[in-house]
């Protein structure tokens, strides 16, 4: 079968727009970049003629460093921008900000924005390739890709694998992108959390809904445990963190009761002792740090594939 050699999209706005072939092409390319970043000299000259702007209108540590490393390891020129220290504070619109940056000859934009759909809005109005690094509660495609890549690295293939996503599904762009990605790769997905943190129509995405953590753990091969987004809890979705930890936190005793070991994942940052205890996060079945390592390789693959088709 002739394999796809380029993505079907000019931007990475969300997993929803990708085909299964796109995702597999990204994974195959990421595998070669993973080899590159484990070399003594971790840098290749592929994107040396490109300039990438990282526009972060919302805070980030991991994603931003990961993108910046990915860009630098491909030899792109990188400019960073964060909303907190920019003219956005003076009332400049998103389109004006981006157009000003583009007129300084920037070729690609990596953007995180609190408004869902912000990168889609830009993609209709500017020429640069856009990579969505998280738009509000909508999508976080590179996180889903690196999660699925990490699972695939472990299992070989995700067809028929059972993945449970725990926690705050309502506010989570990671959950939504993960659901799209895993379904496209043939995995079965179950979401588990308190009813207040599960969107009402989530089942229409083809996922099962469960509120019992132990039952879900029994079912799954992989537990992807999401962060309780303390910054988005202005309405009380649950009575207290202690109560959440008691009913929805995952601890070592629960895992010890399971018939088989399951893979533990977390996109970070971890609230230790809330959604996951330290002994689970640091256990031998946890691949949390491998996820971070794979993040750089997957982002290099996305940048490379989008740049190569420019």
């Amino acid at each position: 079968m002739p394999q796809a050699t380029s993505l079907s999209v000019p931007h990475l706005l969300g997993i929803k727009d990708l085909t299964r072939e796109d995702i597999e092409l990204i994974f195959d390319t990421a595998a070669t970049f993973k080899e590159v970043i484990n070399r003594p000299i971790k840098k290749v000259p592929s994107l040396r003629d490109l300039t990438v702007a990282n526009l972060f209108f919302e805070d980030s540590t991991r994603t931003r460093i990961s993108f910046e490393l990915a860009e630098k390891r491909l030899s792109a020129d990188v400019v960073n921008f964060s909303a907190s220290s920019s003219s956005v504070k003076k009332g400049e619109t998103l389109l004006d900000t981006v157009n000003n940056i583009l007129s300084m000859k920037v070729d690609m934009i990596v953007m995180r924005h609190p408004a869902p759909g912000a990168p889609h809005f830009l993609s209709n109005r500017i020429k640069a390739n856009i990579i969505n690094a998280g738009d509000g509660t909508h999508e976080h495609p590179t996180q889903a890709l690196l999660d699925a890549y990490s699972m695939r690295e472990h299992f070989g293939d995700l067809e028929g694998k059972k993945v449970a996503i725990f926690g705050d599904i309502l506010h989570s762009r990671v959950a939504l992108s993960n659901i799209f990605c895993l379904k496209k790769l043939g995995a079965a997905v179950k979401v588990c959390g308190p009813p207040t943190l599960l969107p009402k129509y989530i089942a229409s995405l083809g996922v099962e809904v469960e509120h019992d953590v132990e039952k879900t753990l029994q079912w799954c091969d992989v537990a992807n445990i999401l962060r309780i987004q303390l910054e988005r809890q202005d309405i009380r979705y649950f009575p207290s963190l202690r109560e959440y930890a008691l009913y929805f936190g995952i601890n070592k005793a629960m895992l010890d009761r399971l018939p088989k070991p399951i893979l533990i994942m977390h996109p970070g940052p971890i609230n230790r002792g809330v959604e996951i205890t330290s002994d689970v996060a640091d256990s031998e079945h946890s691949i949390i740090l491998q996820q971070v390592e794979n993040g750089v390789a997957v982002r290099m693959a996305v940048l490379y594939l989008l740049a190569g088709a420019r």
Binding site: Q3, T5, S6, T29, T32, Y304, A307, G308
Partner: peptide
């Protein structure tokens, strides 16, 4: 027009 496909190193 398309990205070059890498091989294993």
């Amino acid at each position: 027009n398309k990205p070059l496909v890498p091989s294993a190193n």
